[in-house]
């Protein structure tokens, strides 16, 4: 009905708007994809090729095998310590993602479904921590880890990351868990289920979308983190993460583009694949903080 009644000028405006939106998307895509593609192509080119011609020239003659090489990756991963850094990053990231999610999910359940005194007050107190900039906590935390003889250890960075993530994780998960139908929890109570059983058998499976969303979000953040890693792991070369390794490489071999490109790609590969595989959760995760339910 609206289509038939639509005025010509309105229709033109609508089409114009659509074109503008598409154009903007195309521009953004090109802006983002071009350097990424350049980096990707360069990471497989020889040092000589990079120094003599632009990466786009390879696209004109993609089947010329002489210009392609895997040496850059081999050198970066073994010689420059990127392989070890990659393993370290996984060792840092996985527990640093799982730990706060678990704690925040328990807390979100308690804040939603267990009655206790000052519940709203404590919840507000936790959520308020979102406004505290993490830089503010660096010095006291460093001193604390040193005092506990845990500085530059994995445990220290797990707990640090978990702590920084906790308020936002709690906010997102509580919004979701509190919006679950009360009857489901009551039905489980009627069946004599205790809080742990209700959490693991009913709430956790139902909150998985929110948990996955936050997990993906937080995973990417930690993987790409440089600052926290530098501050809390910087003193120990054995536990360097990829971002630190990349920075070191940049300082030491700033002109060796072939190595930097390969190292950059090693750094990017996990976040890019995680994002592509789980992007629907990613979008939902960002919305979950803003839109209830």
């Amino acid at each position: 009905m609206a289509d038939i009644a639509e005025l010509p000028s309105k229709r033109a405006r609508r089409i114009g708007g659509t074109i503008a939106v598409r154009l903007a998307i195309i521009v953004l895509c090109v802006l983002w994809i071009t350097p990424t593609l350049g980096l990707f192509v360069s990471s497989f080119r020889t040092e000589f090729a990079i120094q003599t011609s632009g990466w786009w020239t390879t696209l004109l003659d993609p089947f010329n095998r002489a210009q392609w090489t895997l040496d850059n990756y081999a050198r970066v991963i073994t010689g420059e310590g990127m392989g070890q850094a990659f393993v370290n990053t996984i060792a840092v990231t996985v527990p640093a993602v799982v730990f706060p999610i678990l704690v925040a999910a328990y807390a979100a359940y308690a804040f939603s479904w267990i009655e206790f005194r000052f519940r709203e007050f404590f919840f507000a107190l936790f959520i308020m921590m979102i406004v505290v900039p993490l830089q503010l906590a660096f010095i006291p935390l460093l001193r604390a880890w040193t005092a506990l003889d845990l500085s530059n250890s994995l445990i220290a960075i797990w707990i640090t990351h978990a702590g920084f993530a906790m308020p936002i994780a709690l906010l997102i998960l509580r919004n979701f868990i509190a919006a679950l139908p009360a009857e489901l929890i009551e039905a489980a109570k009627m069946e004599n289920a205790n809080h742990f059983q209700i959490f693991w058998r009913v709430v956790f499976p139902l909150a998985l979308p929110a948990i996955a969303a936050f997990g993906v979000f937080h995973f990417l953040w930690i993987w790409n983190d440089f600052l926290v890693a530098l501050v809390f792991l910087g003193g120990n070369p054995d536990v360097q993460v990829v971002t630190m390794n990349l920075q070191k490489l940049l300082a030491a071999r700033g002109s060796d583009w072939h190595l930097l490109a390969a190292a950059a790609f090693v750094t990017m590969i996990v976040p890019v694949s995680v994002f592509l595989a789980l992007q629907r959760y990613f979008v939902r995760g960002m919305l979950a903080g803003a839109v209830k339910g």
Binding site: P181, K189, M190, N192, L206
Partner: peptide, 20 residues
């Protein structure tokens, strides 16, 4: 007593079946 201790079963208006 807690709900679970009463040995009573309840049928809810919206059924409250566990969707998963």
């Amino acid at each position: 007593a807690d709900p679970g201790e009463r040995d009573i079963a309840m049928v809810f208006q919206n059924y409250a079946l566990y969707p998963h």
